[in-house]
Nucleic acid binder design. Structure first.
Length: 339
DNA sequence: CAGTCCCGCCAATTT
DNA sequence: AAATTGGCGGGACTG
């Protein structure tokens, strides 16, 4: 490329300007507008003046949140911020379903091990071909992104440190190297999430160490208007009421189906049945019952997953959820008082 | 020094 | 074989 130099670390080098977060902001700003539908990676890299590699980072993370969806080689479809709530619902749904699964295992006194753990020294030669692609998916930034979000969805701790997240997402691997790598990735994700205003860096009251908190962007009372730089761009519709969730299936989240989802860790354990469900954005959204547009904003083309059993199961959990919520609320208030 | 996290090598996948 | 994707982690940058 005869483009600008890139490694001449002149005196005018500013690391901040090269951050993934800023890149993400620019990326979003570039596409969050009327008429945008398709996104070409080449064009993006060119527009933003960055290496293609970086675009992959952005794109993979955003896809995990539903903002984008891969259409074909080199091409993504812009779904917008509005798709986030839908994606989160899906994630939440899976979380619920898998919690149950784990409950069974736990009840039946099963050792059961972590979620999405990697476990490299596993099956020496037992890895079937089909598991190969799955294995890769396991390490993907996209999946990590979703699991990271899940941590916020299910953990009682509203404050999560990357170390804690890495620990939780890593199973019991005490592998320093793996840990470091995982944390590097989490930083990437945290940066784009921060730039989108989804999370916010805070100080852990106790340890004083840095951590992140899922912001109550959107509804939820007085939203901390951290949102996007250009605030009232598009109106994000967080505040999906669980009662509205319809169990649907989407390829994007298929991988989750294959994994044991359980959020266990030393720091923020959350028993499958413990009332630790924090409700960041889910709550009686009756305030402005505009919430959902009749149908799913996500995977509209996907076939319905009409499984009665799942439906019932889900209904059951929906109630349990709201029940827990009450308790969780109390807890929160107590904590709130100490601020 | 402890957090951060940019950068790009190069392996895995797709075309 | 060529082009895409995208793990991964060395080590530079911050505060």
């Amino acid at each position: 490329m005869a483009s600008r130099d890139s490694r001449t670390k002149d005196a005018f080098y500013c690391r901040k300007e090269k951050s993934l977060g800023l890149l993400c902001t620019n990326f979003l700003r570039l596409y969050d507008r009327e008429g945008v539908d398709s996104i070409g990676l080449d064009a993006s890299a060119l527009q933003l003046g960055v290496e293609r590699r970086r675009i992959y980072d952005i794109v993979n993370i955003l896809e995990g949140i539903g903002v984008l969806q891969k259409k074909e080689k080199n091409q993504y479809t812009w779904k917008g911020y509005a798709a986030i709530s839908g994606a989160l619902e899906v994630l939440k749904t899976y979380l619920l379903l898998y919690e149950l699964k784990n409950v069974h295992k736990i009840v039946s006194n099963d050792k059961e091990h972590s979620l999405s753990s990697d476990s490299k020294a596993e099956c020496p030669d037992k890895c079937s071909q089909s598991d190969k692609s799955e294995h890769k998916r396991e390490k993907s930034l996209g999946l990590l992104t979703q699991n990271f979000v899940k941590l916020f969805l299910c953990s009682e701790a509203e404050i999560i440190s990357l170390d804690g997240a890495a620990l939780a997402l890593l199973g019991d691997s005490l592998d320093r190297t793996a840990m470091r790598t995982k944390i590097r990735r989490l930083y990437d994700i945290a940066n784009v999430f921060s730039s989108m205003g989804l999370i916010e860096k805070v100080r852990d009251p106790g340890s004083g160490k840095p951590a992140f908190r899922w912001t109550s962007v959107g509804r939820s009372g007085n939203g901390s208007s951290i949102a996007l730089e250009d605030k009232n761009r598009k109106r994000r519709a967080f505040g999906a009421d669980i009662t509205n969730i319809s169990v649907k299936r989407c390829n994007t989240y298929n991988a989750l189906t294959e994994q044991h989802q359980k959020c266990s860790s030393k720091e923020f354990v959350f028993g499958p049945f413990s009332p630790n469900v924090t409700t960041v954005w889910s709550h009686e959204t009756r305030k402005d019952g505009q919430i959902q547009n009749s149908d799913s904003p996500l995977c509209a083309y996907q076939p319905q997953y009409s499984n009665k059993a799942v439906g019932d199961l889900f209904h059951h959990y929906t109630e349990a959820w709201s029940s827990w919520r009450g308790e969780a609320k109390e807890k929160q208030q107590i904590e709130h008082a100490s601020e």
